[in-house]
Design a protein around this nucleic acid. Structure first.
Lengths: 236, 236
DNA sequence: CCTTGTGAAGTAATTCACAGCC
DNA sequence: GGCTGTGAATTACTTCACAAGG
């Protein structure tokens, strides 16, 4: 049943399906049941069937889902049929690491522009890109059709940079700074905050209360833990 | 009213309160209402009051919350009263950037050990730490009392490294690899996956459907967008 | 047998609305 | 006047359980 509106909770899980299906496809699996997929990615089988039903019906009762076809379908629902040009704003340690990160290109995202206001960074090459001054943002973004930006500036510069991005017409921001960005309606912000995640783990360590853990599969097959080292290694 | 069990959704928001309250405290604000805090961090006021009620009652009716006291209380609930030693496993681009990231130390987390199996990395200094071979993990983790680890290895090495961490007794893992880790019950895993976040933004861009966005405050006061650049800058 | 897809049921999270207090 | 804290209502999400198809 084609759904008019896909629940946000489902959208947040679709990328996990893409990851899991890619892995299974790489292993040569042709058909997968919701049960099997559930074991692989740590999401309940009925949840998977429900989620997929929002996209439409693709499974064969009694058989399961065609892995490649389903991967195609889920990817398409996420808008991954096309290539997305991405800008990175802020080229410190983190920004540079992100620029070099291969995970982008593997998923139809391509980093096409780097920006940083620091005079000693402007003009520097990172990979096969040259760092530009943020004043170039409007022109470059328009020419390259950039709609998605990664924000990796120092905290104090984050809101100002976000304002510039919004003014340029960027409507999706992946925010790595520990800041609550203020943006107009219609602009999507996803926050990745190390401190937030660490603090949730701290809570877990303190109270041993499991808190919203994604991707925690069944205990399943413990892999061999490796033999003891043959040679001494220097510790500390 | 002291709550026995804090809902996971609330736990996930507590770090946002910490961030917001820290900012407000830094601005010299002494007392804050749920309304005011809501505007600052983009969470509904009744939601904030409900969340805080799980920790206990700290507000003064007719007045609001004492900023410093509340910050203390929320931090304490997250287990941030103490210092947490943290290990980073995998010292490539990302791992190194994380090792240098100041956001850890600002929040009572201290990176105390780095591990990587690559022979040309073992022994290398990063900041004031030396990269060790993962075979040292059990000994070092025990000596330094490490319970939380950051996983930043290549994808293929992720599960193996996680197994080693678990065998060592680590019970909280911040996983930066695009892998669904299989861990025994009682071990907490938080996943930070760039591809996942990018794909959710891709969905937003494609269908302009806002999907689970945290920290999207009211439009609020638009800051001045800056004047046009006085001097020409080189673009492209 | 086996599986999907989905109404119905159950559970969790959010928001409302107001009593009680400053 | 203003604000908190919380029962009640609402909304969203998840899981059950089974009819229908292979």
């Amino acid at each position: 049943m084609r759904a008019e509106r896909i629940p946000p909770a489902t959208v947040a899980r679709l990328p996990v399906y893409v990851q899991g299906l890619s892995t299974l496809a790489g292993e040569g699996l042709e058909v997968v049941s919701s049960q099997r997929l559930a074991a692989a990615i740590g999401i309940q089988a009925p949840q998977i069937r429900r989620d997929l039903s929002y996209l439409g019906a693709f499974g064969t009762p009694g058989v399961g889902y065609d892995v490649k076809a389903l991967l195609q379908e889920v990817s398409g629902s996420l808008g991954l049929a096309r290539q997305w040009p991405v800008a990175i704003v802020g080229c410190g340690h983190l920004g540079s690491a992100l620029a070099a990160y291969s995970g982008f290109s593997e998923h139809n995202f391509q980093v096409v522009a780097l920006f940083d206001p620091k005079p000693d960074l402007v003009g520097r090459r990172v990979g096969d890109l040259v760092i530009l001054h943020p004043d170039c943002l409007p022109r470059v973004a328009r020419e390259l059709g950039i709609e998605i930006a990664v924000l990796a500036t120092p905290t104090v510069a984050a809101q100002g940079a976000a304002d510039k991005l919004v003014a340029t017409g960027i409507t999706s921001i992946l925010n790595f700074t520990p800041t609550t960005l203020t943006v107009p309606p219609g602009v999507a912000v996803r926050n990745i905050d190390l401190a937030v995640e660490m603090q949730i783990l701290s809570f877990h360590e303190t109270f041993k209360q499991v808190a919203e853990i994604r991707g925690q599969g069944a205990p399943a097959s413990r892999r061999s833990m490796g033999r003891r080292p043959k040679e001494r290694v220097p510790c500390d």
